[in-house]
Design a protein around this nucleic acid. Sequence first.
DNA 1: GATGAGCGG
Length: 293
Amino acid sequence: MVSNGGGNSGSKIRWGELEEDDAEDLDFLLPPKQIIGPDEHGIKKIIEYKFNDDGNKVKITTTTRVRKLANTRLSKRAIERRTWPKFGDAVHEDVGSRLTMVSTEEILLERPRAPGSKAEDSKAVGDSMAQLVKGGAVLMVCRTCGKKGDHWTSKCPFKDLAQPAEGFVDKPPVAEANMPGGAVKGAYVPPSLRAGAERPAGTEMRRRNEENSVRVTNLSEDTREPDLLELFRPFGPVSRVYVAIDQKTGDSRGFGFINFVNKEDAQRAIDKLNGYGYDNLILRVEWAAPRTN
DNA sequence: GATGAGCGG
């Protein structure tokens, strides 16, 4: 069975457009439509050519008087302007057919950063911009240690040691003693942050766990993240897999990283998979050095 | 032989 799925492709004929198209096909044989006026008396002439039913060319002249709008008094200058010949793109336009014209002028837009320019430089600029004072307040304030203008929360030297500083969104608002049930008026507290919620010791509520990072090298070109996950998952919960990709070509750079939730699992994976034959290559699996920023 | 992108209040 053949179906064209309702699309416009294929040989499906749209009859509604056919007639129009046929008429247009012959138009180029005819002299262009001429519009004269309106003159100061409001007389407008339209001279156009058409093919009649017998296929003969006929000239049609239409003379109309343009009605003046009530309450409209045209100045002498305005009346005079209407007698001017059309110019520019408007010569092809009927009188009053369009109040605005589409400009075909090329306008070049300036981009703050042209593609291919040095990303390093602009990043450095961006970071220093973040430290700039806006309305008297320093923008970059670390939410972990509270230091201003030095580093972002994610780059805090204490991010793995300290609990977030007071007064930031990581902690629920302090309950007021006089509120029933210790609730803060109007403040929603997610279940995970409510009093008495399970918070296993040693578990940090970080956005991302960069701990227990394992590097795997000597991957074949076509190893992707799902493949790595499949390979490493049996050792325990994996929080992240990453395969380095060449930004230009999109090809794998032949190495990747796996983050384990538990250090022991990572160690077992290293022990088992280092030297393991995978896709006819010998994998190298070891602890990853901390990322250099 | 090789050590990741991106995200900002």
